[in-house]
Simulated assay, not measured.
Amino acid sequence: MSLGDDNGYGNDSGRTDDAYSTIGGTRQTRTRLPDGEGGDGYSAPRRPARASRSLVTMAGVVVLLIAAIAFANMGGGRGGDKDNGPGSSGSKPEAASTAATGTKPVTGKNGTIPSGFAHDEQGAQSAAANYAVALVSADILKPAKRAEIVRQVFIPSRADELETKFNRAYSKEFLDKIGLDESGNAATGMTYVSRTAPVGTKVTESSGSSTTVDVWCTGVFGTAGVSSTNPVSNDWFTMTLKLQWDGSDWKVDSFSQKEGPAPVNTDRTASNADEIAKAVEEYGGFTYAR
């Protein structure tokens, strides 16, 4: 399986089933401009209809994202022969299987990413949850940190190939279009936000050395700032990660993504840009366990 196979990585994959549509928080499922002069774009409840300016802005960003995705997925890939080992039936999980195991996931880290997961399904699910967070972080858009993330998350045989594809997808021109400089940083007075929280995991296929895990996620993505035309909003999506055991840890061989399942949004008034930026700076992340 690769970024160009039949699991949503091909050049004709849509926004609802591709490997890059939410990475780095670049998915724009909604864009809302300030309601009036001097507004910050966050102080009023969400309107049921978008203004024409919002539609134009969103359409422009979507076109850029699709172009980047297609470019990143160009090139050859490997075939994805499936190993239908134990647990590969994809049957509905029992209630007990979705409860927290209470097992501590890991004690070590590889850089900022947890490592040393157990060689079992629980360990694979914990690894997938933590890797999903890393792959949808704001750091993946920063060239200085991208290579480190790729080599910490992916199996060594895929690292060079995927680093090249990420670099092409998130080029200087692309970053400029979403309001970031060539180092992946937001403009002065702005805070770029891409924070993901796994809600749950499940194994859909498993053998001794290969496990496929679905990670149901929610997150906040966008740019916090008074003049931002891409305000921070939330999203729900599912990442599917195919993991390989490398002899000491689980690593990602390939991944895909689709939208949802998403709950009904409430009418709660959104926080202002300063509150969002402050929250991102003050609230640390977690190590996620199955």
Rank of each mutant, 00 (worst) to 15 (best):
A95L: 14
G85F: 06
T112E: 15
S207M: 09
V150L: 09
S52H: 06
G108H: 00
N130R: 04
P156G: 01
R195T: 06
A51I: 13
N11Y: 00
S126Q: 03
T229Y: 11
R146L: 04
N110M: 09
F174K: 02
G247P: 01
L65F: 00
G184E: 08
T196G: 09
Q244S: 11
T223H: 11
I155W: 00
Q125C: 08
T201M: 04
T218F: 02
S43P: 07
G10C: 06
K145E: 12
S183Q: 10
A49R: 09
D176E: 15
T98N: 11
L135V: 04
K104R: 09
S91I: 02
A134T: 01
Y192D: 14
S194N: 05
A51C: 14
V203W: 03
T238M: 01
A134R: 13
F221D: 10
P105R: 02
L141A: 09
D17A: 11
K251P: 07
T26F: 08
T204N: 01
Y131L: 10
D160K: 15
Y20A: 11
A70R: 12
T266R: 02
F154D: 04
S97Q: 13
L243N: 03
K145D: 13
P231Q: 11
G260T: 09
G222L: 14
G222A: 08
A197K: 07
R195I: 11
R290S: 11
F166E: 07
A95S: 14
G108V: 07
R195G: 00
K258M: 05
Y42I: 05
F255A: 10
V63E: 14
L162M: 11
V193D: 04
D181I: 04
A186I: 05
Y131V: 09
S206V: 00
T191N: 07
V133P: 08
N230Q: 13
E275R: 12
R15K: 06
D214T: 02
A289I: 04
G102N: 02
G10L: 00
E173A: 15
G208W: 01
V62C: 04
E275Q: 12
G200L: 02
E282A: 08
D120A: 00
G189M: 02
P156K: 12
H119V: 02
P156Y: 01
A186E: 05
A289V: 05
F166C: 08
A134H: 05
S157D: 14
R195K: 14
S183I: 01
V133D: 00
T240V: 12
F237D: 10
N110E: 05
D249M: 05
E182T: 11
T223I: 09
D35P: 02
R168C: 05
V153P: 07
P156T: 04
T269H: 08
V133A: 08
M58E: 15
V193A: 07
A128L: 07
D160T: 15
R53K: 05
V215K: 06
A197F: 00
A129I: 03
S126I: 01
F71D: 13
F154E: 10
T211Q: 13
R168T: 10
A128M: 06
Q28R: 15
D181G: 04
D5Q: 08
S13H: 07
K202T: 08
F237K: 12
G208E: 08
A159G: 01
V232C: 12
P93Y: 09
N11F: 01
M190T: 11
V133M: 10
G111W: 10
T16Y: 12
G116H: 01
D139T: 07
W250N: 02
G90S: 05
P34F: 10
G260C: 00
C217N: 15
